[in-house]
Computed example of a mutant assay.
Amino acid sequence: MDLLVAGGGPAGLATALHAARAGLETTVLERRAGTVDKACGEGLMPGAVAALAALGVHPPGRDLRGIRYVAGARRADAAFRAGPGRGVRRTVLHTALCEAALAAGVAIEQHTVRRVAQDGDGVVVDGIRAGHLVAADGLHSPVRHALGLHRPCRTRPRHGLRRHYALAPWGDRVEVHWARDAEAYVTPVAGGLVGVAVLTTVRRPYDEHLAAFPGLRERLAGARPAGPVRGAGPLRQTAGARTAGRVLLVGDAAGYVDALTGEGVALALAQAPAAVRAIIAGDPGAYEREWHRLTRRYRRLTRALLGTAGVPWTRAALVPAAQRLPWLFSAAVDALARPVGESA
């Protein structure tokens, strides 16, 4: 076999799809059966929508026209100049990518990766031999840890919580509501469904976090929760390198700063073809260099926003500043909307 992919989320399935279309015999190993769900904001940036379309994948959802920041009575709006993004239920995205991968000849097996070994000619994963392994097994990537590539983070950990509500969307933007200790991200994902994700450093129940957003809580009053609260974190994850011999890390497994900018899926969709190109060229090190280029803008912008949001007085000034300087807010949103790796 040419390629094994550990992890059947968007990063793994996109990698497998690119590999199969490049002529590589590819198998995806995913520990969870059926459709995979995950706690995420579910808002695809315009660059992610374009990357999926290039793969022939068009998951149904709700068009997103921009981003709105909200803090009490203050709000700031900026439209996407690169075309619409899309609010897509994570399970819908997974199904669309699975169908495309299977149609391309990818084998998908339920399997928990336990042991990885490699030599000069290939890798062996639990007795299965392949030319290369792509680890796309998420934030807490067991493969990253097993290969000694994980690096501890010394920043205060942030976590995410998400719940859906059976409620007609009230707008065509991702709304980011700001409070002292958390942000709430509201994403329309279907005609009668919105997702509300909370990112915070404070550990408390989901409903207690919503109490910090009275305007949002009023919007949600009487709406029926459409599913359980799902959590993820710590969000910040660091890898010492993205490659180790014939193993390449893709998506969250390769390192992650924060979900603040909503670029997670877009980053994974950009890294997937880069990893496949490096494998075909026989130069995994090329992927390491390309990963740094592809993620540079995301890492810089997200760290800058986190630094600003981490100081109480600058955090409180974020939305007023965006309101007073709409051109600056629009420029930042435009940067987020561009395809990953494109120069600003």
Rank of each mutant, 00 (worst) to 15 (best):
R65M: 15
V57Y: 12
H58C: 15
E25T: 12
P60L: 12
A50D: 08
A79S: 08
V92C: 07
L44Q: 02
L55T: 09
L64N: 07
P46Y: 03
L93M: 11
G72W: 06
R90C: 02
G43C: 06
L29S: 05
G72I: 03
P46G: 10
R86D: 00
R65Y: 15
G34W: 00
G87L: 01
A79M: 03
A22K: 14
R74Y: 07
R68W: 12
A22S: 11
A71D: 11
V88C: 05
A50C: 11
A73L: 14
R68N: 13
A51Q: 13
H58M: 13
G56K: 10
A82K: 03
L24M: 10
G83R: 09
D63L: 11
G56C: 14
G87F: 02
L29W: 02
R74E: 14
Y69L: 14
R90K: 10
G43M: 09
G43H: 03
R89L: 14
G83E: 07
L55M: 09
R62G: 10
A78N: 02
R90E: 00
E25Q: 14
P60A: 15
T27G: 03
A39F: 02
L29Q: 04
V92H: 10
R31Y: 06
A33G: 10
L93Y: 11
Y69C: 05
R74K: 15
D37L: 13
R81I: 09
R62I: 10
A39H: 01
V88F: 10
G85C: 08
G83V: 12
V92R: 08
G56Y: 08
A71F: 07
G85S: 08
C40M: 08
A73H: 13
L93T: 05
R89Y: 11
P60V: 11
R32D: 04
E30P: 07
G72R: 07
V57G: 04
V70D: 04
L24G: 03
D37H: 12
P59H: 15
G23P: 07
G41P: 00
G23R: 08
A73I: 05
R32N: 07
G23C: 12
K38C: 01
P59F: 09
R62E: 14
G61K: 06
H58E: 14
L44E: 01
A54V: 04
G85K: 01
T26V: 09
P84W: 01
L52Q: 03
K38L: 06
V28R: 06
G34N: 04
D77S: 06
G47Y: 07
E42P: 01
R65W: 12
I67M: 13
L93V: 12
G87P: 00
A79G: 05
M45K: 04
A78P: 02
G47N: 08
A79D: 13
A51K: 06
A53P: 08
P84C: 06
T26D: 03
E25Y: 04
L44F: 03
V49W: 07
R81A: 13
T26G: 09
V49D: 01
A76K: 14
V36I: 04
A53C: 09
R89M: 11
Y69R: 11
A82F: 00
A39G: 03
G61P: 10
D77R: 06
L29H: 05
D77L: 07
